[in-house]
Amino acid sequence: MKSRIIALVAMMVMAFTGSAFAGAIQVKGSTTVLPLMQKAAETFMKANPNVSISISGGGSSNGAKALIDGTTDIAMMSRDMKGGEIQKATDNGRKPVQFIVALDCIVPVVNPGNPVSRLSKAQLFGIYTGKITNWKDVGGDDSKIVVISRDTSSGTYDCWKSKVMKKDGKKHRVFPGALLQASNGAVAQAVSKNKKAIGYVGLAYLNKELKSVSVDGVSASVLTAKDGSYPISRGLNIYTPGEPSGEAKALLDYMMSPAGQKLAADTGFIPVK
Rank of each mutant, 00 (worst) to 15 (best):
K136G: 05
T152Y: 11
T133A: 14
V116M: 09
G185R: 14
G126C: 02
C105S: 13
N114Y: 05
G169M: 11
K193V: 00
Q98M: 14
F175C: 13
F125T: 06
D142K: 07
K163D: 04
V107M: 05
G185H: 14
K195W: 02
L179K: 13
S154Y: 00
D141Q: 08
A102N: 06
V107E: 02
R94Y: 07
K167A: 15
S154E: 05
R118L: 12
N111G: 01
F99C: 01
G139A: 09
D137C: 09
P96T: 12
S162V: 09
K136F: 13
V191L: 05
P96G: 11
T133N: 15
K171G: 03
V116D: 04
D151V: 10
L119M: 12
K161P: 10
Q189W: 03
D142M: 03
D104F: 05
V191R: 05
Q189E: 14
A197R: 03
V187P: 02
P108C: 08
L179Y: 15
P115E: 07
L119A: 01
V97M: 08
A182I: 10
S149C: 12
L103G: 15
K193W: 00
V101R: 05
S162T: 00
G155E: 07
G199E: 03
G185D: 12
V187R: 00
